Amino acid sequence: MLPVIKEFTAFPEIHVRLLLSDKILSLVDDHIDVAVRIGKLPDSSMIATGVGSVFRVGCASPTYLHARGRPLVPGDLATHDCIDMDSLPSEPAWTFAENGGSKSLRVAIRPRFSVNTADAAVEAALGGMGLAHVLSHQVTSAVVNQELELVLREYESPAIPVNVMYASQPSLPAKTRAFFISLWRS
């Protein structure tokens, strides 16, 4: 989003407040003009435009994989250090796909380290603390730079939709229209 925001702030009268959260915030209650939501959207009065998709991927540092080996099937996670993301109060588990994505497979993990944000999980994986299960866009640069390696690729779940949303209103404010123009140019 930063390249879009940079172009958008070329307008001197525009001021941006960027909220980054792994939780769903209320656009109306939290005075948010535009939101990016990842995942299936519930029915609502919000207007949504699909802008892409991401995947949930398993990853670890080359150092960790060299020391502990590469998991070949999801069941191998039982012998690996896993970095969990805020699974309380439920049992920590990661979901994978079987049979080409037609069947979902939930695998219990025993986290060695638990965090409450994806950024912290990625940093822990970069530090060699274990395997993380995060969204593909969160590790793209680390994979390209060979700081992280993807694992269990053949078990990745189907694509997860990414949408840009805003509250339904009679007339879209000029700043929101200008933001969408910047978004589509990028």
Rank of each mutant, 00 (worst) to 15 (best):
K103R: 15
K23V: 09
E13G: 11
V51N: 15
M46T: 11
L18F: 08
I47V: 15
E13I: 03
V57Q: 13
C82D: 00
A108H: 09
R17D: 13
V54N: 11
A93N: 08
S87P: 13
V54G: 02
K23S: 15
R70K: 10
D29C: 08
T49K: 13
D30P: 08
E91G: 05
I83S: 01
G69N: 01
R56W: 05
L25C: 12
P62K: 00
A97G: 06
H15S: 13
I83W: 07
S53K: 11
L25T: 04
Y64V: 04
T49Q: 13
V115W: 00
D119P: 02
H15A: 09
D22A: 14
W94L: 01
E98L: 14
A97T: 10
F96R: 02
P42W: 00
P89A: 01
S45I: 05
G52D: 08
L19G: 11
S26H: 05
F11R: 07
D119M: 09
A60G: 07
P62S: 08
T95E: 06
A10F: 06
A67P: 03
N99E: 11
A121C: 06
D86H: 11
L27V: 10
C59I: 05
A93D: 05
R110C: 10
V34D: 12
V57D: 06
G100E: 08
A124P: 02
L20H: 08
V107A: 08
V28N: 12
N116Y: 06
T9G: 12
T49E: 13
T95W: 04
T63C: 05
G52R: 05
F55Y: 15
G101Y: 02
E98R: 14
I109P: 00
A118V: 15
D22K: 05
M46P: 01
C82W: 00
H15R: 08
N99V: 12
R56H: 10
T79N: 02
P42H: 00
D29F: 07
P89Y: 03
A118Q: 12
R106I: 07
G52A: 06
D43Q: 06
S102N: 11
D76H: 12
D29A: 11
Y64E: 00
L65H: 04
A108S: 10
D81K: 14
T49H: 13
V51T: 12
H15D: 13
R110P: 01
K23Q: 13
A97Q: 09
F113K: 11
P74W: 04
V34C: 04
T117N: 01
V107I: 12
S87L: 04
V34W: 01
L41N: 00
N99D: 15
D22P: 07
R17S: 14
I47M: 04
T79Y: 03
P92V: 02
A48F: 10
V122L: 03
P111Q: 01
T49M: 12
R17N: 15
A118P: 05
V107G: 03
P89C: 03
I109V: 15
V36D: 08
S114P: 02
H66L: 12
D84H: 07
R70E: 09
I109H: 03
G50Q: 15
H80M: 15
G50D: 11
L65D: 01
R106L: 07
P89Q: 04
P111M: 00
I109W: 05
R17I: 04
F55E: 13
G50K: 15
K103N: 08
T95V: 11
H31Q: 09
V51D: 13
